[in-house]
Design a protein around this nucleic acid. Sequence first.
DNA 1: TAGTGGTCTAGACCACACC
DNA 2: GTGTGGTCTAGACCACTAG
Lengths: 253, 253
Amino acid sequence: MGTTQLESVSEPKYWHLRTVLSQALDSEFSVGEVLPNERELAARFGVARATLRQALEQLELEGRLQRRRGVGTTVAPPRVGVAVETERPLWPGAPGDAWQPADCAQGAAPAPVAATLGVAETEPVHILRRSLTAHGQIVAADLLYVPAASVPELTAIDAPAGPARARSVLRELQRLTLDGQDRAVELGTVRAEDAKDLDRLPGAPMLMVTTRFFAEGRTAAVSVATYRADTCRLTFGASGDVRIVHETERRVS
Amino acid sequence: MGTTQLESVSEPKYWHLRTVLSQALDSEFSVGEVLPNERELAARFGVARATLRQALEQLELEGRLQRRRGVGTTVAPPRVGVAVETERPLWPGAPGDAWQPADCAQGAAPAPVAATLGVAETEPVHILRRSLTAHGQIVAADLLYVPAASVPELTAIDAPAGPARARSVLRELQRLTLDGQDRAVELGTVRAEDAKDLDRLPGAPMLMVTTRFFAEGRTAAVSVATYRADTCRLTFGASGDVRIVHETERRVS
DNA sequence: TAGTGGTCTAGACCACACC
DNA sequence: GTGTGGTCTAGACCACTAG
């Protein structure tokens, strides 16, 4: 990575800088390598630190860089492919499900979830927290909302609130016949309570996956999962090893 | 929206500001309404403009706001649900496909795409550009890579490069039996050439969907589609009207 | 304690939309 | 032109990690 000065062009400096850095990453750095610190990089390119940071933010958004306060900026490994949907619909907690149940409490679901479930906004539902780990890092957090009607044989006595209850709820869910499911994926930001677990700062971009599970002619459960957008690639279907296309593709004759 | 001063708390100012603004949007603004300009808002909350902008950026990322240079900041409508996957796999261009072919040229595919297609990096493939419109706005752009082997009956004479060729390639594709497909979704940024069409600035966040189409025992085509992350919610399966959960969910007893 | 990235400020000027 | 959001600067201080 040279001591290149930026020539003046019509595109924003931070964008040009992003391109230059991106190419440097391709050709001169390997995964895990640490970059010079921000003050030094800014000086090298002759821009203000804020401008340099804008370029780094871009590259982080694209999953090319990883920055940690107090540590430094490193070249990120390729994104992890996370199987969100396999061929057949499955209940959460079915055999082979990699999500780890953390705990379970009862409470009111957020309005949109309550509406989907067809329960009153005030009616308590089971709220199950789970997390997904890949390569020793938590990469996703999930809230699973299950109305009492979906697990009729579960009584409060069965298990105290906490991990044990979580497992009971999941076990009871398997007794229902899953008629189908659908999903929606959108961009979101990390929930304040998850920021710590996911090792992210407030506002970090997340891929939010909302899944509805259908049984007995109604929506039997709703899951809202948030995946670290910087490190995850969500896969749907047979796949697993789709290669990513994250550079700007060259144009064509 | 009051003239509230921010009290000092341990969370970053911009984050607290985001929360305050978010609540104001819920209670005091309706879709399409324009907010006071940034300089005024900053003054009102007693912060620097840059700090206010950080909060607005968050809300834009969450799809709550829409900002346009020279115009102002408005309250965004709920995200548009875009069906990415229906029940059965379909070729691009199949009846009912809402994508508009724009043109088609021949060129080399980016390395990862070439690898997936099983062609040499230098071997030209058909590269088809398409766009997707919703509510009069282009919300997604797509590049479809089709190796010559997948459309053997298409000759250069059939159609000149351009929209006509695009339609020919799609027509030829339908002749193959589609054995299956898989997808990957990840966060990306807008390609420089698409920025204009999509009415976005460089670096705007996009949901990138890579689809592989399988036929005759190999990967017969690869599509790389980028959807505006601010305005789109991607749906998979039966759905269509899943309600979004974009506020920070309240925690539970 | 030293060094990193994260937050914040108070300015300036630019690009663009609309009148 | 006027007003908007977008870019950029040159500083300061804070929060965190690691030696």
